[in-house]
């Protein structure tokens, strides 16, 4: 009889725990480096929309509104016990990694994520499109371009340039790369490089882009030689880049949320870091017209923003 009673209690307890587990929706902690920054805010907003559609709960922690962020974040994690911590920006990820290395972490908007301290149970969406994505889209606009040149510093960008060369070669494009040790070498390097190429590609290299003067020098030289400039960011459009292709922020937020849902269901291999799936394209028609450079007009269906000359 005692055994029967014991079994009943056990069954009741099991039912209670199982139902309690199902009743509680999964909770995600969003740690934002600075929610006043537009890009971080956009990503967070799209991330939350997807969580809401999937009946997930979340708590937000913005580093910019806490005096002792580390201690308060630690306390919040203990209190909330989230299934996953979503970190927006490098600062948020670094802090979360310090205080909750045993938790599943998902990052996005971290510049050069390969330099982050990545552990087991870390997932992410990179900040930049892969070079293969960029080159594919570049070909959509300029199908006849064959030789693209770029400047880089070997210490900072060697691996990235090797990847670009490999990806470009697979698509029949020849990358002519010229290493520089410091910004003083830009002028001579451009004199050597520009005559050999159809287009110049500005990559995110801290030595090449060390100052405004360096950037101006690139655009002035390219203009003198009538060579178009392609850039990884639309901040260079104003300077005269003909095309800029970058990651779409809203998609990064949605993609991070999709990844979070899959991570929660253990459907993603540990350590998965994805490239952004969405792109934003800015086309500078004013610069194209000045160079009398034709582009594939069908590609206009993929343009977010067209820059015309001020009349």
């Amino acid at each position: 009889m005692k055994i029967m009673e014991f079994c009943k209690v056990l069954i009741l307890l099991s039912v209670f725990w199982v139902s309690a587990g199902f009743a509680q929706p999964s909770k995600v902690l969003i740690v934002n480096s600075d929610n006043a920054v537009f890009r971080y805010g956009t990503i967070a907003s799209e991330f939350k929309k997807v969580l809401q559609q999937n009946a997930y709960q979340w708590t937000e922690f913005n580093l910019n509104s806490h005096a002792d962020a580390e201690a308060e974040l630690k306390q919040l994690i203990q209190q909330e016990n989230p299934v996953l911590i979503y970190c927006i920006g490098t600062k948020a990820y670094s802090l979360a990694r310090n205080v909750a290395s045993n938790k599943k972490l998902l990052f996005s908007a971290a510049i050069n994520w390969r330099r982050l301290d990545i552990g087991e149970g870390t997932y992410g969406v990179a900040n930049e499109l892969s070079s293969a994505q960029e080159i594919s889209l570049l070909r959509y606009f300029f199908p006849t371009i064959k030789n693209i040149g770029l400047l880089y510093n070997d210490k900072f960008s060697r691996e990235y340039v090797e990847t670009i060369k490999k990806d470009a070669s697979a698509l029949g494009i020849n990358i002519i790369n010229q290493p520089i040790n410091d910004a003083q070498e830009i002028g001579d390097a451009l004199n050597e490089l520009l005559p050999k190429i159809d287009m110049f590609w500005i990559i995110s290299d801290p030595v090449v882009l060390s100052s405004k003067a360096s950037v101006q020098q690139i655009f002035q030289s390219a203009q003198q030689r009538k060579k178009p400039v392609y850039a990884y960011s639309d901040v260079f459009i104003e300077q005269g880049a003909v095309l800029a292709i970058s990651a779409d922020l809203a998609t990064i937020g949605r993609q991070s949320a999709s990844l979070a849902l899959m991570v929660d269901k253990d459907k993603v291999p540990e350590g998965t870091v994805q490239n952004p799936a969405g792109s934003t394209v800015t086309l500078n028609k004013c610069a194209l017209d000045a160079l009398r450079l034709n582009f594939n007009q069908d590609a206009l269906d993929s343009v977010n923003k067209i820059v015309e000359c001020n009349k």
């Binding site: 959509y140 999709s258 969405g278 269906d301």
Partner: peptide
């Protein structure tokens, strides 16, 4: 899970 991207070419890539 549906992931909304800006354009067709993004989806295929």
């Amino acid at each position: 899970k549906i992931l909304i991207v800006p354009k067709d070419i993004d989806a295929i890539m």
